[in-house]
Nucleic acid binder design. Structure first.
Lengths: 333, 333
DNA sequence: CTGAAAGCGCTTACAG
DNA sequence: CTGAAAGCGCTTACAG
């Protein structure tokens, strides 16, 4: 049988209320009493029962992180950062893989997990952000991913339009003129928003955008990038640069270029988005947009906890994650 | 206020017991009653309170997965597989990053999370497996990682000695004679066990092992592999092949070889261990030992749930994960 | 097959 | 500063 609060109280010769006070760090306890209780806790190796506490308080100190897939490096790195940020505040993160299924995403929005969790950080991929509504009973929610007008939730994201503008402008600045984009059809608005920045940069440089150079693909993985790059190389007039809307696409594209015997950046320059570790070690290393993931994690958790703490009526917050353009070998050979 | 069981009962015109029976799928309920109850559940959008259920039943249907770091691709892929396997059985997985800290690993072993979880799947990296003991109050535990004699727990792992033997023998079979090993000092026995297979293969082929060719490094990441490879290249007589004890080390080594202008596998052949997706897309693609991660996940979860279900006294189980040697460009240019 | 009641282990007004 | 008691929302013997 596990040790209970009352066992500790009995051993310390105080009431359960006093033990509870010590555990929850309430004031007005003599250091003598505290010491007695702490000794009993140690002696009995007492651990509070989370279920009971959560049932009574209506708070569990668990939050959920709902992401498309944890095996995808960007989400793995993000999940690690969010877990760390939460742990620092005594919060545990439950990671939920939606695998981009609408049904799973709906479950998230329905306030999954039978009220165990206190709130959700949600990175949607199938559900359009504008369509997200929560049941009245549902928990506070912070959205990750592209900004969208008229959203109903707190939101933490990179300014994708600006970042994509910067990435494309960098390619222009090294003399490229026929610049393709891969990932235009990406989920939950990513493709649309990043294309906007890409086109804006072309326009600012006086270049026409060529629809034949904008590849949608079916997903955001290495194989999608590899396939899109093959399509581009089959064009009568292939591109001299590619802006891939995430690093995984870029790594797939690099693989196709290597197979084709083309040099990077000599024949084709490549830029990604996310700055996953993989790209830093690749040969050639990958130029990419590097969002500050620790900042993102820290703030997503912070905003969510604020909301949980009761600022239900406060204004919706919209935080913009700092980023840098990391110039590496794939554009700077 | 959230809907409670009693609200459902009231609306359906039955007792709470009956509602509970329906939810928990107990027999002896007329289909009429069941229909009434289900209608009420739907109408009220009722979700059972997990904390209350868990407090009462003493089971939460949560298990923990404790791994060194979720941003490491192998663990990310494994975590994804284990989450999926658990979800299929109605179990939720809590992922715990120990970051290889002894203190965090100790917390795991102390039966962390105040009894919320029903059991633990643990991949130790700092704590020597032989040293693992659990408090009496602790939960069932399944160990991942290297096998060790005299262990006290269920265990699921690749036969690393055999797999390392196969990897090394493959290098010998393509004509290499000066074969280095990177990762010899790896945590929780991995380095030792894989070196054993490596040496065994050399011996079987009549080759001496050369201590100068066995690199310990400080970790199992890309930068460790890159650094170790630099050391090897600085040798008076560099190797013509390297067996890296995981793929991350191998990818780091490949980067160093690329920087040095050496050809792979022409000058140096490289083999890894884990078969992470990264290695499949790298140029050159990475030859590696590929453990069946889905098999591992399925069985780790299965064994743990068996144990939770009450086979506390049953014999300790020792499952061996199937693997294949995936021959790719890094040894087969 | 169903109902009334106890109890899982906490926290928290309420008295003192 | 401390104690006795209620109650969070379930499940489960126990009666009927």
């Amino acid at each position: 049988m596990a040790t209970r609060l009352s066992d500790v109280a009995a051993r310390a010769g105080v009431s359960v209320k006093t033990v509870s006070n010590v555990i929850n760090d309430y004031p007005h306890i003599t250091s003598q009493t505290r010491a007695k209780v702490e000794a009993a806790i140690t002696a009995l190796d007492y651990k509070p029962n989370v279920s009971a506490r959560s049932l009574r308080k209506g708070r569990s100190d668990f939050i959920a992180l709902a992401i498309p897939e944890m095996a995808s490096p960007y989400f793995a790195e993000l999940g690690a950062a969010i877990s760390r940020a939460a742990k620092r505040r005594g919060i545990t993160v439950l990671i939920d893989q939606t695998e981009g299924e609408a049904a799973a995403e709906k479950l998230v929005l329905d306030g999954m997990r039978g009220q165990l969790i206190d709130g959700i950080i949600f990175s949607p991929i199938t559900t359009a952000p504008a369509k997200i509504r929560l049941a009245d009973t549902a928990k506070p929610l912070v959205l990750l991913g592209e900004r969208h007008p008229g959203g109903h939730f707190d939101h933490v994201a990179v300014d994708s339009v600006q970042a994509s503008f910067d990435a494309t402008t960098h390619l222009i600045s090294i003399g490229r003129r026929r610049i393709a984009a891969i990932g235009v059809g990406g989920g939950a608005g990513t493709g649309t928003v990043r294309r906007k920045g890409y086109r804006k940069a072309l326009k600012a440089a006086g270049l026409e955008h060529d629809p034949a150079l904008e590849l949608a693909g079916t997903g955001y993985h290495r194989d999608d990038g590899a396939a899109s790059m093959r399509e581009l190389l089959a064009l009568p007039e292939p591109p001299d640069a590619v802006f891939c809307f995430n690093d995984l696409l870029a790594l797939g594209a690099l693989r196709t270029l290597a197979d084709a015997g083309l040099s990077v950046p000599g024949d084709v320059a490549v830029v990604g988005f996310d700055d996953i570790e993989d790209g830093r070690y690749h040969s050639p290393s990958l130029t990419t947009i590097s969002p500050d993931k620790d900042w993102l994690a820290e703030n997503a958790v912070g905003v969510l906890l604020d909301r949980i703490a009761g600022n239900g009526e406060a204004d919706r917050r919209d935080l913009t994650v700092p980023y840098t353009l990391q110039i590496r070998e794939s554009t700077n050979g």
